Amino acid sequence: MLEKPTYTDGLDDGCHSGKRKGFIRHVQKRYQTRVLIELQRLQQRKKANHISQQTALEQEVMKGIDTDALNSLAKQ
């Protein structure tokens, strides 16, 4: 038979009913933290993807352009 999870000492349910809800809040906090980390990773991937797409587009645009004149300016 499965036992109910035990609650962490020192945390109450906020209603002062005497019931402890530390375990549940701990699990919820871990879940929220995990969701925030995943959202941050998603934003970083989107930014990296946007940058790589921008670079690819710039390279595609520059394919037909003669850049020899720019090289001589860089040497000055």
Rank of each mutant, 00 (worst) to 15 (best):
L73N: 08
K19I: 06
R30F: 04
I24W: 13
M62T: 00
S72R: 14
V27G: 15
H26D: 15
L36A: 06
L42V: 00
Q54K: 14
R41Q: 14
V35M: 02
Q54M: 15
R34F: 05
L57A: 05
G64D: 00
L57Q: 06
D13K: 06
I24Q: 14
Q44C: 07
H16A: 09
D9Y: 08
L39S: 02
A48R: 08
D68K: 08
L39Q: 04
G64F: 00
V27D: 12
F23Q: 11
L36M: 04
A69H: 15
A56R: 14
T55W: 00
A56S: 12
I24R: 14
T67I: 11
Q44H: 09
Q54Y: 13
R30T: 07
G64N: 01
S72G: 06
D66K: 08
D12Q: 03
M62R: 02
I37W: 05
L11R: 12
I51A: 10
H50F: 05
E60C: 02
A48F: 04
T33V: 01
A69V: 08
H26M: 15
M62I: 00
R25I: 02
Q54F: 10
D66I: 03
V27R: 15
Y31W: 14
T67Y: 10
D9E: 11
K21C: 07
L57M: 06
Q53V: 13
R41T: 09
I51M: 06
L73T: 03
K47L: 08
D13Y: 01
E38D: 09
N49Q: 15
G22K: 13
I37T: 12
K21H: 10
E58A: 04
D9C: 06
Q53L: 15
R45L: 11
R20K: 11
D68C: 02
G18Q: 14
L57N: 03
T8V: 03
M62W: 00
Q43C: 14
G10H: 06
I51S: 09
K63I: 02
R34Q: 07
G18E: 12
M62P: 00
